[in-house]
Amino acid sequence: MSGVSPDLIFSLQPAGLEAAALDVFRYQYRENDIYRAYTDALRINPDHVKSILEIPYLPIQFFKTHKVVCGSFEPELLFESSGTTQTINSKHYVKDAEIYTRSFMTAFEQFYGPVNDYVIVGLLPSYLERQHSSLVRMVQVMIELSGKPESGFYLYEHDKLYQELQALEARGQKVLLIGVTFGLLDFAEKYTLNLKNTIVMETGGMKGRREEWTRDEVHQYLKERLGVDVVHAEYGMTELLSQAYSKGNGLFMTPPWMKVILRDENDPFDLKAGKGAGVINVIDLANIYSCAFIATDDIGKIHTDGRFEVLGRLDNSALRGCSLMVS
C-alpha cells in the first residue's frame, strides 16, 4: 500500500492534495497493471512525474474494457454504469465498501452538515430497478444513517411522496429530496409544492425518458413547481468513489481529496490547472484500489473561485445514462 491511507485521504486539507496524489500515483503505477501499461505506452517515467499536471489520466473507457484494479482482490462491491442494450457498461470493482461510505458521507456532511438532521428521500426510478448502482448504494446508506423512519426510496408513488413532503414541511423537518432528473420532472409535473425546509438535489439522468432539456430549463421548472429558491446537484459517476456538489446554478465544489482539472479537447495531454474551459479530468483519491486519475468525456469550465460546471459531453463519446444536457 502507498503511504496514503484512507484515514489520511479523508482528513486531507486542500493544500495536501498534490503530495498525496503523487504518492497514490506511484502506488498505482506499481500495483495496477492496466494503469502501468497505459503509462508505459505514453513513455512516461514515473520518477519524473513531479506535479498533478504530469500525472497520466486514464481514459474512462478503460472501465468498459478492462478490470481496473490494484493487485488482486475479491471486491466487496461491484458498481456498473447504466446504459442501453447496445452499449458496453463500465464496471468498477470496489475492494473496500467502507471507503465508499466514508467518501460520500464525509463529503456530504462537509457541505450539508450531519446526515441525521435530514429525512432522506430517494426518487430514483429505473436506478432502483437496476443492480450495482453506486447512486442507489449511496442513498440507501444515507437513508439508514439518517435514523428517520420517514426516510426511504420512492419508485413511482408520487401521491405518497406528495403527502409525505407536505407533512414534513408542516412540522419544519429538514429533508433531502435526491432524485434522478426525469423522476423529479415527472413528480413536479403532477404536483406543486412550497418546499422551504427541503433541499431538492438532481443527480442527472434523462435516459431518453423525456425530451432533452437544458440544465437551466430543468432547474427553472423545478424551482417554479416545487417552490424552492435553488436546485442543488450531485456530480458523480460509476468510475469514481467521490462526488462533487452544487448548491445552485450548476457550480460544483469538490471535497479536499477530489480535484477537477481540464485538458485541451484537441490535445489530451495539455492540462490546465487554473480557470478556463476544456474536458474534465478528475483526481479522486478515494479510488485507492482502482485508478485515482480519470480522463472523463465531460466538457467543463472552472471558475475563478475554483468551482466548476459541466457544459456538455464530447461529441464522439458514448452516451452515459447520467448525462444531463446544459445550455
Rank of each mutant, 00 (worst) to 15 (best):
270 D>G: 05
81 S>P: 12
154 Y>F: 14
229 D>G: 12
210 R>C: 02
1 M>T: 14
295 A>S: 14
283 I>F: 15
14 P>T: 03
139 V>W: 08
86 Q>L: 08
149 P>M: 01
98 E>S: 07
81 S>Y: 05
90 S>A: 09
162 Y>E: 12
195 L>R: 13
153 F>K: 14
72 S>K: 12
70 C>Q: 04
252 F>R: 00
13 Q>E: 10
250 G>W: 03
298 D>A: 03
137 R>M: 05
132 H>G: 11
28 Q>C: 05
227 G>F: 11
93 Y>M: 01
94 V>F: 04
110 Q>Y: 13
297 D>G: 11
267 D>G: 06
218 V>P: 00
288 I>D: 04
72 S>N: 11
160 K>D: 09
326 V>M: 12
87 T>I: 04
212 E>N: 06
251 L>T: 02
115 V>K: 01
241 L>K: 14
274 G>I: 01
134 S>H: 14
218 V>L: 01
185 L>I: 02
149 P>N: 00
172 G>K: 13
19 A>N: 11
206 M>F: 03
272 K>S: 10
217 E>T: 09
234 E>F: 04
158 H>Q: 07
7 D>Y: 13
220 Q>T: 08
158 H>E: 05
56 P>M: 08
242 S>Q: 10
269 F>Y: 15
78 L>G: 01
196 K>V: 07
228 V>I: 09
303 H>F: 14
251 L>S: 10
119 V>Q: 08
77 L>K: 00
246 S>W: 00
258 M>I: 04
90 S>P: 04
29 Y>F: 13
228 V>Q: 02
62 F>M: 08
216 D>N: 12
93 Y>V: 00
174 K>W: 06
317 S>D: 07
12 L>K: 02
209 R>Y: 05
258 M>R: 15
60 I>T: 09
